[in-house]
Amino acid sequence: MNHQPANTTTANSFLPQVSVVVPIYNGEADLPDLFSCLLSQTYPKDQVEYLLVDNNSSDRTLTLLKTSAGNCPIKIHPLSENQIQSSYAARNTGIRAATGEIVVFTDADCRPQPQWLESLIQPFVNPEVVIVAGEIVALPGKTLLEQHANRQETLSQKHTLHHSFRPYGQTANLAIRRIALEKVGLFRPYLTSGGDADMCWRILLENIGRLEFAPEAIVQHRHRATLKELQSQWRRYGRSNRYLHDLHGVELMREITLQECGYRLARWFLKEVPQESVKAIAGKATLVDILNTPIGLFTARARSDGQRDAKLPENAKIIDRL
């Protein structure tokens, strides 16, 4: 994984055809902001197509996509994936319809910044680059849980780009050369988590080319605001690790026990709470600092539960082809 600035003159004349694929499930509320972000892109509009794939939504997502496609100055292609309920299956539907040399991925609840595409595509001026990951930055959050996640930079690509097994980029902000997809296949359509890592690793294992990080290619994403959402997020991280263990031999994460949780909570209450409270009175700490340990234990426990309870479905081993 590299991060090298491209030659500016060459990069400015490098404007390949790009296909942006966005899977959407019940995204009616997200569509106005998403369209606004896509409209504001600085990349030449005639060089981009947007493939927005409804994944069997029960709200008005598909209707709104079709309406917007006819009234929009950018090329929007509304598509449907109704056979398999999976964001990866929806992405595959988008890839099959894509005509671009580079296929870009983001999600309906992401907010790409104006220079997102321009910055994400630039590293491809180097023919050795086949994957580019942009950065994911949190939207401003008001709740304690959002502030805690922001402090931990939970969404940032820096965690996945430094994965102990191999680097990978999350599909919230990822671009891949089409030729790589032609060689290794598409996403595993029945996989429900970990498909972004699986895809990047399959490409890197084939030695087709390398992965680059584009820190200026920014999408914003909202942190989870409730305990239920936070638990679901971290259970999914745990399931993902189990699936990647079964598919690629990734080392399983150490599971945190109830006994360990109890010990660390007691230590927190007796030692950390008094210390952080004194800092808070002096204006040097906040409630987020005081609650850092219990929130961290909650997410670690959720991840352990997800990893322990997950079982890779047999059909999740299937790789779709172009």
Score class of each variant (00 low, 15 high):
R264N: 13
G306Y: 10
E212Y: 12
E212M: 10
R224M: 14
G306P: 08
I281N: 05
R210H: 12
A280W: 08
V273E: 14
K284D: 11
E255Y: 00
R242P: 03
A217G: 03
S304T: 12
L227S: 08
I290Y: 02
T293N: 05
G238A: 02
H245S: 07
G283H: 07
G249N: 11
V273S: 12
A280K: 15
P274S: 08
S277L: 15
T286K: 13
R222Q: 10
R210M: 11
H223F: 05
D289N: 15
V288F: 08
F269A: 15
L252C: 06
N292H: 08
V273W: 11
H245G: 09
L265V: 11
E206K: 12
H221F: 04
D289T: 09
R242E: 10
P215L: 04
L252T: 11
K279D: 08
R267L: 13
F213K: 00
R222N: 07
L270F: 10
F213W: 15
G249H: 07
W201A: 02
L297H: 01
L297S: 03
R222I: 00
I208M: 13
P215S: 09
L227R: 06
F298A: 14
P215N: 06
L287M: 09
R202A: 02
L265S: 03
G306K: 12
N207M: 08
L211H: 10
A310N: 09
T286G: 12
Q233N: 11
E212L: 04
N241I: 05
Q233F: 15
I281C: 08
A300R: 14
V250T: 10
N207T: 04
S240I: 02
Y263S: 04
L205M: 06
E272M: 09
H248V: 03
G306E: 07
R239M: 11
G249D: 08
S304P: 04
I281A: 13
K271N: 14
R308I: 03
A302C: 14
D305M: 09
E206S: 15
I203W: 02
Q233C: 11
E260C: 04
A302L: 06
Q259W: 09
W234V: 01
T286Q: 10
L265W: 02
E255P: 12
G296W: 07
N241E: 12
T293M: 13
G296F: 05
L270K: 04
I203R: 04
N292Q: 06
T299H: 04
R254P: 08
P313Q: 08
F269T: 05
T293K: 02
I295F: 06
E272W: 13
R222A: 15
W268T: 08
A282T: 00
D246W: 11
R239A: 15
E255F: 04
A282F: 09
N241A: 03
E251P: 00
E276R: 15
L265F: 07
E272Q: 14
V278D: 04
Y237W: 05
R224N: 14
L287Y: 09
T299G: 07
A285Y: 14
F298I: 06
W234D: 12
E255N: 12
D246K: 06
S232W: 12
L270S: 09
R303T: 05
R308G: 01
F213T: 00
L270G: 03
G209N: 11
A310R: 10
D246M: 07
K311D: 03
E229R: 00
D289I: 05
L252F: 09
P294N: 01
D309W: 06
R301S: 14
K271Y: 13
